[in-house]
Nucleic acid binder design. Sequence first.
DNA 1: AACATGACCATTA
DNA 2: GTAATGGCCATGT
Length: 108
Amino acid sequence: MSHAAGNYARIFAVVRRIPAGSVATYGQIARLAGLGGHARQVGYALAALEDDTVPWHRVINARGEVSPRSDGDDHGQPERLEREGVVFDSRGRVPLGEFQWRPSPDSE
DNA sequence: AACATGACCATTA
DNA sequence: GTAATGGCCATGT
């Protein structure tokens, strides 16, 4: 482990933990990955992502909507989420209060 | 090294 | 509810 780019692995590891049917926000991922406050880096890491084993489509912004990307293409993110049970409202946003991922309450 | 851009977030008005 | 501001960091030119 080591160093550089290590942050990316951390972010991917957390994203992989998101269960199907749930969504997580960039800030939430950053916080869980130990990068609290660096939400931007999470988005940047996912942008450079090329691994299909990472459910990047389950990561959305704090507004509950799919963030518009520079490519202008959502890569079918909303479609994938609906396919897993996630629902969008009339405004095209997901009710975080219902679908936001809740980390395993290990020590609870 | 400096500058500009980017799948962001929280606070304040 | 919307609008504007500051912050924080990686990458490419």
